[in-house]
Simulated assay, not measured.
Amino acid sequence: MNNIQFDQAIEQFVTYIQLEKNFSPLTVRDYRADILEFFAFLQVEAVADLAQVEYIHARLYVTKMYEEKKARTTISRKISSIRSFFKFLNKEYDLDDTAFQALYHPKKEVRLPHFFYEEELTKLFKANEGADSKSLRNMAILELLYATGIRVSELTSIELKDIDFSLNILRVMGKGRKERYVPFGHFAAEAMQHYLEESRPKLIKGIQHSELFVNMRGGALTARGVRFILNDMMKQAELHTSIHPHMLRHTFATHLLNNGADLRTVQELLGHSSLSSTQVYTHVTKEHLRNTYMNAHPRA
């Protein structure tokens, strides 16, 4: 089918990945942005119809991204986004999608996840103790993130009904609307109960909603709000390193593996669909073992 309009095609694709593929709002946003960026490139190249896109255009686009010094992980993601888009058009309109099917995925850089050492984490917890409403809430967030390894997007979507204190189990809605159950320990349970009994009723200010964590105005806490809270807690602890929310997830996985947990269990707890996503943490634990050996052995 010729003359497939850009606007019409992307809206149909976005509807497809939202309703049929159950992609998260963040993933949908990234896919849309990647495709719109490619559309802008096509317009510069005077390609007015998606049916005119050929392998040479795909190669030129990838070359352009390398010239702009984009990270290989970013380029790889953009290729995946556009490839999925053309695969959809092939299915819906019988459009030739070989341009991106034949394209090589750049190899990802091996980046080891950053994590907290146990003494750093102890300092972070100690420096942020307090009995006021804000401190109780922040401690509950910190304890729960470390206890479960959940993503910040998963944390902010937790509702009161998702917590089972009798079994210390948390129901989590992960990527692709995949549900899983994650256990938590007594430190996290105690911090959450203190927050629910002494802090949340004061913070919520009569606003009725079911989200577990609330901001200082009583509304549901956002991912951006969690990032702000964690940065503030780092300042309180005077830890001279930057923090990102995934760092506590990395710490959770690394500490479990360092203390003897098996990879399959960690995969299930993290909600990874593939074991290869979890295996990056084995590189971290090997590096940790090597550093410990080099520092401790007299003839290392």
Rank of each mutant, 00 (worst) to 15 (best):
M1D: 10
N2H: 13
N2T: 11
I4Y: 07
I4H: 04
I4P: 02
I4G: 04
A9V: 07
Q12K: 14
I17E: 05
Q18C: 09
Q18G: 09
L26Y: 12
T27G: 10
T27D: 08
R29I: 03
R29L: 14
D30H: 14
Y31P: 05
D34L: 08
L36R: 13
L36Q: 06
F39Q: 11
F41R: 03
A48S: 09
D49T: 03
Q52C: 12
Q52R: 15
Q52G: 02
E54F: 02
Y55L: 14
Y55F: 14
A58R: 08
R59D: 06
K64V: 02
K70T: 03
K70F: 13
S76R: 14
K78Q: 13
S80D: 07
F88Q: 03
F88V: 00
L89T: 04
L89D: 07
K91A: 14
Y93E: 11
L95Q: 09
T98Y: 12
F100H: 02
Q101M: 13
E109D: 15
V110G: 09
R111Q: 14
P113M: 10
E119A: 14
E120N: 07
T122E: 12
N128R: 10
N128S: 06
N128D: 04
E129S: 12
G130H: 08
S133A: 14
S135K: 15
L136R: 11
L136V: 10
E143C: 07
L155K: 01
E159S: 14
L160E: 09
D162P: 00
I163T: 00
R171W: 02
V172L: 10
R177E: 12
E179A: 00
Y181F: 15
V182R: 00
G185L: 08
A191N: 08
M192L: 15
L196S: 07
S199I: 08
S199R: 01
S199E: 04
I204A: 01
I204L: 06
Q208R: 15
H209T: 06
S210C: 09
L212H: 07
F213P: 01
F213R: 02
N215K: 02
N215T: 01
M216P: 00
R217Q: 13
A220Y: 00
R224K: 10
R224E: 05
G225M: 09
G225W: 02
G225P: 08
M233K: 05
M234C: 05
M234N: 05
K235A: 12
H240N: 15
H244F: 12
M247K: 04
M247S: 00
L248N: 01
R249V: 11
R249T: 10
A253N: 07
H255G: 07
L256Q: 03
L256I: 04
L256W: 06
L256P: 02
N258M: 11
G260K: 04
A261K: 02
D262L: 07
D262Q: 09
L269I: 03
G271H: 00
S276R: 11
S277V: 06
Y281S: 08
V284M: 06
T285V: 15
T285G: 03
T285A: 04
H288G: 07
L289C: 04
L289I: 12
Y293E: 07
M294K: 15
N295W: 05
H297E: 06
P298R: 11
A300Q: 08
